[in-house]
């Protein structure tokens, strides 16, 4: 199985510079539907689904490989290599911001610029570090996912996966945008919310943009600022948009900030 099929890679446009968009936990490449068209003129656009999400090959999911974010970063590198990406732009939302950091560590030549949308290198508070979640809260999340295996797929999954128990509703309610395999989603949540990539930030050589939302419960402002401080070469932009998905809730503002950072986008 090649990387393009495995990760449901879509390539749009033929610009000489490539932008790779990576979605975060909870959705798939549809996350970028309001953003990527703004760059289609000057760039080659690469969209993909992480394994276990969207239309990726679920068979390719491997417990061992995807037990850390590094497994996902390996896929990013493979996709870029397959497409001959070099000196490109990586745009990662949420957990994928850190996946981009890890991919860049594996292959520094891939990206000149990294745009981090609502990044967090660690979600759990630590001595001298505020991640936004007490350890107990993350464990409440993980326990909820584990203990309510059935409950999860009966309550959350209907929206995410359609309703196996009520197929007549599935048509109407099936979410064609952010489909997720419930079992894999659980594991992805665990990897995401237990990750700690603070030590990787200082090694990033690419120019970085940190896009921070207001009132983001997942990645609070102090976390974005921390990321900005640790990166050797970064800009920080605080968006007016609230929540965790400015790419959906405030695409214009997001695009504007990215364009300002990338300098018009044509190279």
């Amino acid at each position: 199985m090649n990387a393009r099929q495995r990760n449901n890679v879509n390539v749009i446009g033929a610009g000489s510079k490539t932008i790779v968009f990576a979605h975060g936990f909870g959705c798939d490449q549809n996350m970028w539907r309001f953003v990527w068209p703004a760059f289609a003129d000057g760039y080659r656009i690469v969209l993909f689904d992480h394994v276990g999400c969207g239309n990726s090959d679920l068979q390719a999911y491997d417990d061992g490989k995807y037990a850390t974010l590094d497994g996902y970063a390996e896929d990013v590198v493979e996709i870029c290599r397959a497409l001959g990406v070099s000196g490109g732009v990586f745009v990662g939302h949420s957990v994928s911001a850190m996946i981009g950091v890890l991919a860049a560590r594996r292959a520094a030549d891939l990206f000149d610029d990294i745009v981090m949308v609502c990044p967090s290198p660690r979600y759990i508070d630590d001595a001298g570090y505020t991640g936004g979640f007490a350890e107990a809260q993350i464990h409440e999340l993980l326990d909820f996912l584990d203990a309510n295996h059935m409950g999860w797929s009966q309550t959350l999954a209907p929206v995410i996966m359609g309703r196996p128990d009520r197929p007549e509703l599935a048509e109407e309610l099936t979410n064609s945008f952010c489909s997720t395999d419930p079992e894999i989603a659980k594991k992805f949540a665990r990897v995401t919310f237990l990750s700690d990539n603070r030590a990787d930030l200082s090694a990033v050589t690419a120019r970085c943009l940190v896009l921070q939302c207001s009132e983001d419960v997942i990645a609070p402002q102090c976390v974005g600022e921390y990321v900005h401080r640790q990166l050797p070469n970064s800009e920080f932009v605080l968006l007016q948009a609230t929540g965790h998905c400015p790419n959906l809730s405030a695409p214009e503002e997001t695009v504007a900030a990215m364009k300002a950072f990338l300098g018009g986008g044509n190279s």
Binding site: G243, H244, L248
Partner: peptide, 18 residues
């Protein structure tokens, strides 16, 4: 934040979320 808000934005609604 990670699932339902994106869904609402993309499909215009969500139903029966527990």
């Amino acid at each position: 934040e990670t699932h339902f808000a994106p869904l609402l934005r993309m499909q215009g609604f969500f139903h029966e979320v527990a």
